[in-house]
């Protein structure tokens, strides 16, 4: 790759390193693994740069970061847990959640991090992409390579689980 092309690649993608690291850190739950995954992702991205059609580099890069996290050097380290196949079916019926909502407002950062890290990885991923990266459903579908309906139901289930398990975290230690 000639230097000008490499510089173009860097101009396009290095500004997204912050997002890349954040996603990798949440998926791998380890500083070191996140760094390795980001580095691996950039090396893959530069190889596939020819296939990048311009537009939003962030979603494109995050797709590769995600794949790097799932297929890292330690195979099997991060595996998609098998969510029952019925996830397309709406299990988002909602019981009224009263006291939990009040608790939410008092949740400390530590309790939130712990509750998020305890979620199955695909739920955690959905929440990070949506709440922290602010991706649209369409971008989330692109990054996770899932149909938009699945993206939506995962997000709904992720939020429901988080609402349910957050109070447990908060009882576990001083907030």
């Amino acid at each position: 790759m000639d230097p000008t092309e490499l510089e173009r690649f860097e101009r396009t993608f290095l500004p997204h390193m912050r997002a890349a690291y954040n996603l990798a850190r949440w998926l791998t739950r380890s500083d070191q693994d996140a760094e390795d995954a980001v580095q691996e992702a950039y090396l893959r991205a530069v190889r596939f740069f020819g296939g990048f059609r311009g537009g939003d580099g962030r979603a494109w890069l995050l797709t590769i970061v995600r794949n790097a996290c799932y297929t890292g050097r330690q195979p099997g380290r991060l595996q998609e847990s098998t969510i029952p196949f019925d996830e397309e079916i709406h299990d988002v019926e909602d019981e009224a959640l009263g006291p939990e909502d009040l608790l939410l407002q008092k949740a400390s950062r530590r309790a939130l991090v712990q509750a998020l890290e305890d979620l199955p990885v695909e739920f955690r991923e959905a929440l990070v992409l949506r709440e922290l990266e602010g991706l649209s459903y369409k971008e989330m579908a692109e990054v996770t390579q899932l149909p938009i309906g699945t993206v939506m139901s995962r997000l709904a289930r992720a939020r429901k689980r988080l609402r349910r398990c957050l109070p447990e975290q908060m009882e576990g230690g001083p907030a």
Partner: peptide
């Protein structure tokens, strides 16, 4: 309530300073 709890806590992991140099 959940959204504002997630948005209010700084849940973003900042990349370490040396990472960009390493990747470059």
């Amino acid at each position: 309530a959940l959204r504002s709890a997630l948005g209010g806590a700084s849940l973003y992991f900042e990349e370490p300073k040396h990472l960009e140099g390493r990747v470059r």
